[in-house]
Design a binder for these strands. Structure first.
Lengths: 404, 404
DNA sequence: AAAGTAAATGAATCAGTAA
DNA sequence: GTTACTGATTCATTTACTT
């Protein structure tokens, strides 16, 4: 997927792009906090024509507005813009966006909430930033993301169908025998406008990286909400290039611009390097990343074992030995075929002199063709989820047979 | 403690107050939603409504600014204002407050975040409102509120004293024997600007039927942050009177104003007999609702399912249905016999009309004696760990046979 | 007492009609 | 086509009640 990075003023780059070419623009412009003072004191007149208020009042506002106008031009009719700002500038940004994209196309004020180390503050500890979401038109591309139910919700009740009683009050429907009626399956709660995403994920400490970069999950969410694979994404202030990395991992085209040569070379490096940790994070979501190891190994609950870090072939050793050597265990990973997983385990196991190994099979991924056969010393064990998957297909055929 | 309630336009009442008399003003004006809001009490005895339709943004802004100027006048030099608004008007409010109180006295943008019953949205589910916090001067009254540590924080470590090492890096101090030194107790983390407070529940007794009623807890927090006992608090749009109730409970003096006679009489009633419902959720935390633990649910990795938290018999519903009803799943818990687990699942499943249920068996706990037999509709599936346990005992006997 | 079930509801949102 | 209104419908949440 093509990723372009330009070292230039984004106004120039935007100007050279054709109209209606981009699906999404994310921008995180610099905040001229030192200028804010002048900004706010300039307007002494009491009239509320917000339209031209900032326009002439401030270089900063003009600076942004020039670029927003270009962004509006290059966005497709189905396109969206995400404007990242902190609490000192959110109202200015809002006004500018109302001007260029119209109040009517305001979609959401996203609150990115994170926990932070506190200094002793006189006041409330700042712990959020704002992302303004506008679309170019009312007919904008949007994919609903669903999240889990609150633990306090009775999921069994919301599976029930509802109707109106005589007084037109909403009640849960029942059939003539007084039994509850089920309506279709529920998949979860639509994503809200408050996103709790940790600033840095705990494991990121290991990386000697760029400390101020935005969490990739944040950009991932934005990309998934409003773009598809192959869509064009533009970041006019790309900085360390998080947007570009996310775009690459999710297979979106991207154009990044930054006026600083250092930022550009940084971005290039990040985009070119295979970013294993990032891609792992993206594939599984932040939650599962945090406890990916534990969740795979929870399959071993109740069996004494020692988890193994940093070994591609072996996830854990059982305490139980065979021929004096602890038994290596591996869990078949998502997307891996059984033979791939077995081969990987076998190689690592042999190097540890193991005579017996256990592979927990989680998926029936068909191997297209493979010369490798699972050796006898690798014992296959089905995971419960695999057994259930098989069961489900049996159940469906069982039902079919009832009708035929 | 004196609580006054005036049925009037707040501009009149504010105008008649002497300068520098109030310690805190909380206001919750109409939000510029361009709608009329109507709601009746549960018993349909009273109907409340207010009109939030304006000809233009500047009408709305002028209306507010007139009142803000008076509020600025009546606040003490140590006083503060909290302006409650939602996402449709937060930027207008911010500009007005910058004008009347100055950008310099902006203290915080508080995000009140809550969970809400949703409806089908094309977009992000709104789940927050904004409270803008300005002080009259830089010398404002403020009490730091401390909150608990997040569960991931290593509290032991926080209690350790810190010092600088040779390279001037911050390290945890140790005494001459290498033992850690404990500094004084830490009380918690300073309150952040994102407040998660549950919305008033549909069933809460505190509920009065007034639209937009705020939780008492929200107002209590604001009062505690910036006022002391005996201080004067003013709410120019008091509505159902939550501010006044909170003020009474915390022994602050208060003046409430509302233009609607119904709102005023409701406020009077509430102040006389305050009802405060404690949120079970806040008191005990979301975790207290959980009974399906994560490691149990991770056995279902890869199978679309919805976790069920408040049911002892069912841990999750599969997305797949049998006879139109999602299939309930349960994981045998530690120490439970298979028949116990199956019985529990069976009972709950039957009440949901399920015709097929799945029990994941994790242990061979022998049932001492039991009349109950696992019914046919409960399908048993072995977990991987159980399969491995069986395997291990086989392996041992296999090995034995080699030696004998 | 503890667990499970029922109820209430919207600073909602949507679809359809009228201007 | 666009905008503005109005009545209809929806959904997850969390307390209160019942078993």
């Amino acid at each position: 997927m093509e990723i372009e990075i330009h070292n230039n003023d984004c106004l120039e780059v935007l100007h050279d792009l054709p109209p209606s070419c981009a699906d999404m623009v994310y921008l995180d412009p610099p905040f001229f906090t030192q200028r804010e003072h002048r900004l706010s004191t300039r307007d002494r007149e009491m009239e509320f024509s917000f339209d031209d208020r900032w326009d002439s009042a401030s270089d900063y506002a003009t600076f942004l507005e020039d670029r927003l106008i270009e962004i509006h031009r290059i966005l497709k009719a189905t396109g969206s813009i995400f404007f990242h700002c902190d609490r000192t500038a959110s109202h200015i940004a809002r006004l500018l966006l109302d001007n260029t994209f119209s109040q009517r196309n305001f979609r959401a004020e996203i609150i990115w909430h994170y926990k932070r180390w506190s200094n002793s503050v006189r006041g409330l500890l700042p712990a959020h930033q704002t992302i303004l979401f506008y679309s170019k038109t009312g007919n904008y591309k949007f994919h609903t993301i669903l999240t889990g139910y609150s633990p306090t919700t009775n999921v069994d009740q919301i599976l029930q169908k509802r109707s109106r009683d005589d007084a037109n009050k909403s009640v849960y429907a029942r059939d003539e025998n007084g039994n509850v009626i089920f309506s279709g399956a529920k998949d979860g709660v639509p994503l809200s406008d408050v996103w709790e995403i940790p600033f840095l994920n705990p494991k990121a400490k290991e990386r000697t990286g760029y400390p101020t970069q935005k969490p990739i999950l944040l950009l991932e969410r934005i990309l998934q909400l409003t773009t598809d694979r192959g869509d064009l994404v533009i970041d006019p202030f790309c900085g360390s290039g998080t947007t570009l990395v996310a775009a690459r991992l999710l297979e979106r085209k991207a154009i990044g611009v930054d006026i600083s040569p250092e930022a550009c070379s940084l971005s290039r490096k990040r985009v070119e390097e295979p970013v294993r940790t990032d891609s792992h994070l993206l594939k599984n979501g932040a939650e599962s990343y945090r406890n990916a190891d534990e969740s795979a190994l929870s399959l071993l609950n109740g069996i004494p074992h020692v988890p193994v870090q940093r070994n591609n072939g072996i996830d854990a050793f059982l305490r139980v030995t065979f021929d004096g050597i602890p038994i290596p265990v591996r869990v078949q990973k998502y997307g891996e075929t059984v033979t791939e997983a077995a081969l990987s385990l076998y190689k690592s196991g042999i190097s540890k002199n193991a005579k017996r190994m256990i592979l927990i099979v989680t998926e029936d991924v068909p191997a297209l063709f493979s010369d490798f056969k699972v050796p006898d010393c690798v014992i296959l064990v089905d995971s419960a989820s695999l057994s259930i998957k098989r069961l489900i297909s049996n159940l469906s055929s069982e039902k079919e047979s009832l009708f035929t």
